[in-house]
Amino acid sequence: MAADLGKTARPDLTGIEHVPGSKKPDAIVVGDHITRQFGGLKAVDVGHIEIQRGVITALIGPNGAGKTTLFNLLTGFDTPDTGEWSFNGHPLARVVPHKVARLGMVRTFQLTKVLAKLSVIENMRLGAKGQSGESFLKAALPFLWRSEEARNTERADELLARFKLDAKREDFAGSLSGGQRKLLEMARALMVDPELIMLDEPMAGVNPALKQSLLGHVKSLRDEGRTVLFVEHDMDMVRDISDWVIVMAQGQIVAEGTPDAVMADPAVIDAYLGAHHDTDLSEMDEKALEAEAEAELEAELHDTETKGS
């Protein structure tokens, strides 16, 4: 792992003001006046944003709030109409995506982008930075890159073991389940050894059994000194693991704060969580669904009986 990722104590966030765009003691990303317009819709309109180094920051908000668009803008996959932002003091406006990634700011995608027709281990090897075997002139001469490849493979195997994907090492990545793909994408991003890892909905489509282990993995990223920024709809996850929450609505940052404070904020509750934010919606739904299904079944049974006679 990178030498510059010191395992210092987690920064204290208690002193930070709970207002949109608040100043952070040690910001890794600082952005100003970032806007992106799609036709008549202002998808992103962020006045000021700072992401604290060494903690897990959650970016939440209703659908269409501009979270993923902001992700795309920050990582260079989309170009904003106005605005400037920096990573570790390095200005990033109009920097192409691969250069952003090389600086140490690596993202994953909402719809996982594992390379289905490459094996799991090849997916991992692809992530390694600065491979001399990827140079056209050296590629045909294996003795120039073989030892480097072996080192990368070793590191990849360690990560696969950590993410419990080592049993799938030689399988095509396309044969993995949705949750395993999320894990592979995260592990592959770690091959780049990023300082800031940006996860776009890491829990979407992941079964509950795998969710717990995914949560653990995200926490472990912070514990080894990386900064994590993630977009998520799953409130349990946000409450569980994030140190700081930024709430977006209609392209703007509407609130910021620690998870508990944000979820108690009436503005956030109105805008996003709704009145039922304390009851477990999924459980309620289940009961309602069951009752509905039973009624349907009975009706059907009755139907066939009358037809049969």
């Binding site: 090389r102 995608f109 982008k113 692809l126 930075k129």
Partner: peptide
Amino acid sequence: EDEDAVRSLGKN
């Protein structure tokens, strides 16, 4: 297979 995935890993 996927250009964006490769880009996100820092490849030109």
